[in-house]
Simulated assay, not measured.
Amino acid sequence: MATGDRRVVIIGYDQAELLDIACPSDVLDAANRLGVTPRYEIRLASMGGRAVRCASGLTLAAQVKLEQVAGPVDTMIVAGGWTYLEQAEDQRFLDQVRRVARMSRRVASVCVGSTLLAAAGLLDGRRATTHWFYADKMAEHYPAVTVDPAPLFIKDGSVYTSAGVTSGLDLTLALVEEDHGAVLARAVARNLVTYLQRPGNQAQVSVYVAAPPPEHAVVRELVNLIEADLAADLRTSTLACRAGLSTRHLARLFEQQLGSTPSRYVRGARTRAAARLLESTRLPLTGVAARCGFSSTETLRQAFLDHFQTSPSVYRMVHRRRAAAG
């Protein structure tokens, strides 16, 4: 390793998802091939330096024992895998994840690797994402983490989590852009013949792979009501009255079915709808706010800051630039 290289440690284990390892490593390797300075020094680590037998049946040779990783580390990335629940109960493994995280400039995960970060206590008090299919389970087991199953990836401070499998590519392109700028990140994307970096706040699920609607008929009906008219009176008391339930009972149903309070669900639905309008129309912010049920542009701005960590105007500007670049 040359002096000043960015050390990247990807953590694998038995039955890890191959793409969770390959997407980050190949993005960083493509950046190296384009001549970035400093370069990325990429190493696959495992407990005891054991070979990583991936879920696909292919086996990868680990280059370093996780227990022997020494700092400083630029980026630690934890892969997802079919045995993630077993890993989440392995205290020796979690101790090493915590140790390496302490010496890392930033920490990231792909897919259900976020559950391992949560098990290590690295996501407490943070907003994080994971594969949409496993989001409810993660939220249930780690209540100190705000789990948002919608975005492709989320940055909360120096901790980054991404959704299922190939979203690791989008996350790593974002890391490259953060390190070396948007021009280089777009060059890497072209080199990999992939989309010129989907924004992290883009929904990870389409209508074809979306999670099923709530099983409970009342919650399903209310969700349809909310989505149909976001500008309506959607206070929890109003929704409870429509359903013929107490507000406490309604809150329990929403937590059980959606992992969210009614008010938080409504706010998220309004924010996502506002994002779509900002992407696809030239409506002024006042019009976007009104159409999506926000009482003012300030409440819209605050919702965007909480949900996307950026303002509506910046979101619109960045989306237009990316669309133009594409």
Score class of each variant (00 low, 15 high):
Q309C: 09
A120Y: 03
G12M: 06
R276V: 13
A269C: 07
R98H: 10
L305A: 08
A45H: 09
T310K: 04
W132Y: 14
Y160M: 10
H180R: 13
D136P: 00
G4Y: 05
D90Y: 02
E177G: 07
W82D: 11
P143W: 11
Q91E: 13
L230Y: 05
A289D: 06
A16K: 02
N32D: 09
V183E: 15
Y265Q: 06
A228W: 02
S295K: 15
V9C: 14
S56K: 09
L18T: 10
R242K: 14
F304W: 01
T161N: 09
L285Q: 07
D74Q: 13
L245R: 12
Q63P: 04
H131K: 15
A289R: 09
R252D: 00
N224L: 09
G200Y: 13
A128H: 05
A144M: 12
Y265V: 09
L152M: 14
A144S: 15
T194V: 14
V188T: 05
D29Y: 02
S25I: 03
D90W: 03
E255N: 14
P212H: 13
A210G: 14
R252A: 08
I226K: 12
A174W: 12
S295L: 12
A174C: 13
A163Y: 07
R320C: 01
A150Q: 11
R320H: 10
Q197R: 15
Q91C: 06
V8A: 09
L123H: 10
R248L: 05
A16E: 06
E177Y: 05
E41P: 00
L250G: 06
S109F: 00
A51N: 12
L225D: 03
G287Y: 03
H141V: 10
R98K: 14
Q15C: 08
K137T: 05
R291H: 10
H180A: 14
R322H: 10
Y208V: 15
T130P: 01
S109T: 00
A108G: 10
D124Q: 09
T281W: 12
A324E: 08
L250V: 07
Q96L: 14
E17V: 11
R39A: 14
G157R: 10
A303F: 08
R321F: 04
T297N: 03
E67Y: 07
A324F: 12
L192D: 05
R186W: 00
R276P: 00
T310M: 14
L122R: 00
D170K: 14
S295E: 10
T299W: 04
P143T: 07
